[in-house]
């Protein structure tokens, strides 16, 4: 089990960022030397619309403490409507995961544009703080009886 309060525990956060806005926003945070929590690991995808809900479930199954998904602001999608379709999926998924008892902080969605380096940095800090507060993932590793 990954449960328990290991003193050295530091959250492992998987982030999916779309290439055209949010990844560029993360680049800008870097160019601007904005310091943020080192817990995040970014996976670049072409579009937030590429993110299969199964990725998020897979990350949780593998024991990620948090998942962050970010795409272009609605209307800004490089692929015209990718983030609009994604928004519906994400909205339902988030509410569904909350319903089965996964903390809302565990899986978060946001929009970050290519010009929003500061927003990206603040977002990572917020997500990292949230997850530190709620503690490690409680995905049960015990075998089925």
């Amino acid at each position: 089990m990954t449960e328990g309060n290991n003193k050295d525990w530091s959250p492992r956060i998987v982030a999916f960022l779309c290439n055209w806005c949010s990844y560029a926003g993360a680049d800008l945070a870097g160019v601007s030397r904005m310091q943020y929590a080192p817990n995040i690991r970014i996976i670049r995808v072409p579009c937030s619309g590429r993110i299969n809900p199964l990725y998020i479930l897979s990350a949780l199954r593998q024991g990620a403490d948090g998942v962050l998904v970010s795409g272009c602001h609605p209307g800004d999608c490089h692929y015209i409507s990718g983030n609009y379709v994604a928004r519906r999926k994400f909205n339902m998924l988030k509410k569904f995961l909350e319903h089965v008892g996964i903390c809302p902080e565990r899986v978060q969605f946001s929009w970050v544009s290519a010009a929003e380096g500061a927003r990206f940095a603040a977002l990572v800090d917020k997500v990292a703080e949230d997850i530190k507060r709620i503690g490690p993932a409680k995905i049960p590793m015990v075998p089925v009886k």
Binding site: V85, R88, N91, W111
Partner: peptide, 19 residues
């Protein structure tokens, strides 16, 4: 079906606002 279409005015209420 709702998950293969969209509306530009769909809700954003689940989005994390960092500030």
């Amino acid at each position: 079906p709702p998950l293969i279409e969209f509306n530009v005015d769909d809700s954003d209420n689940f989005i994390t606002e960092p500030e």
